[in-house]
């Protein structure tokens, strides 16, 4: 038996009003209309599963998602599941996108979902952590050498003042940025 890290992404397949509101706040209220073109969000669950093989670990989680409604409601969500190779933050980004991942510093949500999984009778899932993954489409494609890129991402992602930052509160949440070239940078926490 080995422990496998899996990444479960859950997104709405209907219109996402939360992303729309956040986009409007960034563009219209925070004067970022010249920098931010679009925004989408999804829940990203980092799961650790004890199983005899990677295939079996994925099968356990897939069955859990499809039969319990714990992670996704099939009427409104779509999900994707992959072995976590460490690139889950930025692996699928387009060249003009960056991802900002936000998670609570302290939360009982993980314990609650693990408890619900156990009540369901599914064995093997030993760890679960939820992130909200914001996909930020910028008006021009970012590059590793771009001056001012990280300050811009902080202006979008970390609420430091009334004017700056929206997607995370650094006092209660941690945040990191992921880039289409595979790099990741901590933003808060």
């Amino acid at each position: 038996m080995a422990t496998f890290k899996l990444s479960l992404a859950v997104a709405l397949k209907v219109g996402d009003n939360e992303a729309r509101s956040a986009l409007e706040a960034l563009r219209a209220k925070m004067d970022l209309e010249d920098e931010v073109r679009d925004l989408a969000c999804e829940e990203l669950w980092e799961l650790e599963v004890e199983a005899p093989s990677a295939e079996r670990a994925q099968a356990i989680v897939r069955e859990l998602v499809e039969t319990t409604n714990l992670f996704a409601n099939p009427n409104k969500h779509r999900f994707s599941l992959a072995l976590d190779d460490g690139s889950s933050g930025g692996g699928d980004l387009d060249e003009d996108e960056i991802a900002i991942l936000v998670s609570d510093r302290e939360s009982t949500e993980s314990a609650s979902i693990l408890s619900a999984i156990r009540r369901h009778g599914t064995a093997g899932v030993v760890c679960a952590r939820k992130w909200v993954r914001w996909r930020v489409r910028l008006t021009r494609a970012p590059s590793p050498e771009q001056p001012g890129l990280l300050p811009l991402i902080r202006r979008i992602g970390v609420a430091t003042s009334r004017r700056d930052g929206l997607l995370s509160n650094p006092h209660s949440q941690i945040a990191r940025a992921a880039f289409p070239w595979g790099d990741e940078k901590p933003l808060a926490g």
Binding site: D104, T108, S112, G165, H171, Q173
Partner: peptide, 18 residues
Amino acid sequence: PGRVEMGLATNIMPDRDG
């Protein structure tokens, strides 16, 4: 004033959340 100095985080309660 104007600087975010604190947060109101999700409840931490024994055996429940939300």
